[in-house]
């Protein structure tokens, strides 16, 4: 039976096994490979997408559970790197191998949507589910602060 959801702003209908994780629907059925496979157990965060705005691990999310929901993937932020968080990632030269960075960026965007000016402790809380084997953590921290500073929403109103 087809499952329908909104993917990066467009309606998407998929007819696959209902227990197939969203990750594999994205990667193998829709060929949207920006979202990465790292562990399959929600341990590393490489597969992070937004489901109704919440950072979620697509590797353990059965496709049946996203019916009617809004999914945003890395491709949905911007394809040309103009999203402020992507720009901050480039400016701080964050990626090394780059494999985990889609997931890192999706976690960071979700954090900044909730806290427009996060502290280091906020960043630790929100980002510690994302592993980077190249160890770009220091730059991720700087990039999140940079994106926060660049955002027009940077006021105290969120506090």
């Amino acid at each position: 039976m087809a499952i329908t959801f909104v993917l990066n702003g467009n309606s998407q209908s998929i007819d696959v096994s209902p227990d197939m994780p969203l990750l594999w629907v994205l990667r193998d059925i829709l060929n949207m490979t920006g979202t990465k496979f790292g562990c399959g157990m929600a341990l590393c965060g490489a597969c992070t997408v937004h489901i109704n705005g919440e950072a979620s691990r697509s590797c353990i999310t059965p496709i049946s559970t996203v019916a009617g929901k809004n999914i945003t993937t890395i491709e949905g932020l911007s394809l040309d790197g103009t999203h402020p968080v992507q720009q901050a990632w480039v400016a701080e030269d964050v990626p090394q191998c780059g494999y985990c960075q889609s997931g890192q960026i999706m976690s960071a965007v979700a954090l900044l949507a909730k806290k427009t000016n996060p502290t280091d402790a906020d960043i630790d809380d929100a980002m510690s589910g994302n592993i980077c084997r190249c160890g770009t953590y220091q730059r991720i921290r700087k990039a999140i602060h940079r994106a926060a500073a660049a955002s027009p929403a940077k006021t105290n109103s969120a506090a």
């Binding site: 491709e75 394809l79 040309d80 480039v90 990626p95 780059g98 889609s102």
Partner: peptide, 17 residues
């Protein structure tokens, strides 16, 4: 700055997988 940082920040970079 790395020339591939942008592609690695948009999901466009293609890995083996």
């Amino acid at each position: 700055q790395s020339v591939v940082a942008r592609k690695k920040s948009t999901g466009a970079a293609k890995f083996g997988i």
